[in-house]
């Protein structure tokens, strides 16, 4: 499984989001690759899911419109509970 953590620049917030996602994955005991990237590079990656700010989801929908991918809006990038909820949904969808 591959997950993208996306923000405007791919260096700060998306890095924090990636670490929160990794922590959630560890707590679920699931192995997955997590990559942080900026929004303009995001569509160049093949992934199962994209985690990003609600402000970016509309833009991401357009960029990924021909791809089978799940988009998860995250309001607080370091909120482990919020991220865990979305990671759980993703894991369930893969079962």
């Amino acid at each position: 499984m591959k997950i993208l953590a996306v923000c405007g620049f791919g260096v700060g917030s998306s890095m924090i989001l990636k670490l929160t996602i990794q922590k959630a994955l560890r707590e679920f005991g699931v192995d997955a690759e997590v990559i942080n990237t900026d929004i303009s590079d995001s569509a160049g990656h093949n992934a199962d899911a994209v985690f990003s700010s609600p402000d970016f989801i509309g833009d991401l929908e357009k960029r990924f419109k021909n791809k089978e991918i799940k988009l998860y809006p995250i309001k607080r990038y370091s909120d482990l509970e919020e991220v865990k909820e979305k990671v759980q949904d993703l894991i369930d969808s893969k079962k």
Binding site: C7, G8, S13, S78
Partner: peptide
């Protein structure tokens, strides 16, 4: 431009820009 996503947790923000 991008909205308030630098607010990473309640009460906390990480202002930054592209290198």
């Amino acid at each position: 431009e991008h909205g308030p996503y630098i607010v990473l947790a309640d009460d906390f923000a990480l202002p930054h820009a592209r290198p």
